[in-house]
Structures are given as C-alpha cells and as structure tokens.
Nucleic acid binder design. Sequence first.
DNA 1: ACCCGATCCTAGCACCGCTAGACAATCGAG
DNA 2: CTCGATTGTCTAGCGGTGCTAGGATCGGGT
Lengths: 192, 192
Amino acid sequence: MSVKERKERERAERERLIVATARELAEQQGWDAVTTRRLAERIEYSQPVLYSHFRGKREIIGAVALQGAAEMAVAVRAATAAAEGPRARVTALARGYLDFAERNPAVYDALFRLDGGLAYAREDTPEPLKDAFAALLECLGEVAGDGVHPGLFTEVFWASLHGIATLTRAGRLPPEEAERRVELLVDRLAVL
Amino acid sequence: MSVKERKERERAERERLIVATARELAEQQGWDAVTTRRLAERIEYSQPVLYSHFRGKREIIGAVALQGAAEMAVAVRAATAAAEGPRARVTALARGYLDFAERNPAVYDALFRLDGGLAYAREDTPEPLKDAFAALLECLGEVAGDGVHPGLFTEVFWASLHGIATLTRAGRLPPEEAERRVELLVDRLAVL
DNA sequence: ACCCGATCCTAGCACCGCTAGACAATCGAG
DNA sequence: CTCGATTGTCTAGCGGTGCTAGGATCGGGT
C-alpha cells in the first residue's frame, strides 16, 4: 500500500507545483502569459498532465485564487491586529487590503477579476473565500454604525476598496493621492 | 474631388458600422465572442478591412468605450437633472450610474475593465472620458464637504460605485441588497 | 482605351485551450 | 520470472484566435 501512498504524495506535490508555477508566471508576466503550453514547459511535463489535475485553465486560476484568499485573510488580520482602537484598525485594514492588491496583482486578479469558476457569496462558497470575507467583517463590523447590518456595511466598504484597487491599477486613477483616498473613505464610511 | 469625398463618407460610415457591430455583438454574447472573424463576417467584409480602420482589436474596444463614455455622461446628467436637492441628486447619480452599468455591461467593460488602449486621468485623455468624469464631478462636487478636494471626492465615490458594479455583476455580491448598498453609500460618503 | 493606384480578399503565420490515441512503465497473478 | 492488465505520460492534432503578406480586381484620370 505504501507505493500507492507515495504516488499520491508525488501527485499532490506536482499539483502544488502547477499552482505555484501558474501564480509565479502570472505575477511575472500577467495572466495572459499563462498559457497551458508555457505552464507545461515550466513544470517540465506535457500539456495533458495539467488536465489530469484540473478541468482546464479556469480551475487553475481558481486554485490560485483560493490560495490567495487564505493569504489575504492572514494579511488583513495581521494588519488590523497591530492597530489600537477602531479608527486605527479600519485604516490599517484599508491600507493592508490595498497593499495586498498592489503587491500581488495576479493573485488579486484571480480572486476578483477573472473567472476561476468559484462560487461567491453562497452557501457552497469555498471556505477560504468565506474566511477572507470574515476577516474583513471582524474589523468592519464594529464600525458599521447603529441599525446597519454589519455584513452589508462590510460589502460596501469592501466594494469601495476593490474599486480603488482596480481603477488605480488600470490607470484610471492617479496613484499619487492613494493615501488621501483611504483617509477620506475611512473618515466617511466608518462610524467611529 | 466629389468622388474622394464620397469615398471618405463611405469609409466613415463603415467605421461606424464596425464599432456598432462590435458593440452589439459584445452586448449580445460578451466580449469573448467578439472575434475579428465574426466581426468581419457580420459587417460583410474580410478581416483585413478591420485593420485598415483600427490597429487591432484593442482599438475597436477603445472606440466602443469612447462612445459609451459619451452616453454615460448623458445618462448621469439626465438622472441628476431630474432630482431636487443635493441628497436626491447624489442618490439619483448613484442609481443612474449603476443602472447604466447593468444595462450596458459590454460598454461598461470596454470603459473600465478591458484595455482599450486609452489614456485615463491625464492631459491627453480623450474628451469623452474627461466629460464623463466631469458629469460626475458636477453633481458630487457640491457634497464633497469642507476642505475636501472635489476631484478627490469624486474619485472615491466613483471608485465605490465601480466596485459595487463590478462585484455585483461578477457574482461576488448578492444582487438583492443593491438598493440598500446605494443608500448606505450616499448617506455616509456625501456631506449633505 | 489604357494605365496605375487604391482597395479588398485569399491564404497563411504563430499561437491558443483542449483531447484522442499511441506508447512505455509498473503492478499483480500464475 | 514471465506475462497480461493497468496506469501514467507523451506526441500529434483539432478548431479556434489575432494579425498580415501578397496577389487580384476595380475604378478614376489621362
């Protein structure tokens, strides 16, 4: 039976390699450069091997997204944990979120811009996605204000951050005023 | 000389046809379905004709975006003009914006999600884009609040709307609470 | 009536995501 | 230890993509 186990280990290892390589390639040259041919070449296997692990390119994007969601949750919690008081926490969250988006553009795209075949905002949403939202909720819930549903408030705050992140990176917003935009958003949206 | 003029007219007419057809196709089946072959077939010319009008697919997207920007400016101004008082105006703007995004998803994508090769937020930004931003500014400038730069406020409000629009359409936000999200955003961001 | 330039199309390039079918390596039974 | 079956991987190819080179054809000016 140990042979089978070894093969399963090796197979799992190769799957990790595929996801890591896809992510690396996307981070280096953008998702357009992540083709099944290039990806196969980098992991030193032929194309069809990819399809024995994933249904297609979309699922590979989804796998990167899941990994990214877990990391984003960690990043957000780390940022907020280091801050004292509601206001500082929310500011830290906003900065942490935008920072993550800027430093991991490919992962951010996999999560929120591309189609990774994942279900969002539903019962069958994968756990890492739920947890990433929960990480936002933990901090933002306490500044939603009276009579405002914490979940709804978190959605709006998150959407605002997402808008800033995407428009900035697409060159639709000048990057110079980034910090002032964060301040304005926190000042106005959060009830302190 | 009249022959030359006629040819130029026909050429301009064909260019309009290309843009209109691309937009129609994108609105019907999404931008992925807008291939140069399908587009060429629909306008009843061969592929290379497209390249005598545009450098490539990207420029065609850009042309649709420019058209869409002009329409969005009109839509936003129409929505705000019908409202009395700052609060009603801002609410109308938010609803009008999201409504435009929902009813013209392909145009919205061309404007803010895809790469149409256009310059944003710069001196050489095409006039329709500047004017669309101006349309937002006209209404939002009056609720920016003291000491807050109207342009910066408009950017943040716009980014928030953009975030809601994109996340909702990508299935990242449940569509049911759309109206309550708008109310929350207006209540908090605008200084009334 | 003829030539010549503008205009348009056919055919093709290199690449894409994805898959069928041939081949080799490995395992279990006799 | 050998032999068939199973598993795993690869080569080759399908239909599609954006884009372009080069030849045919059409129409205006002389």
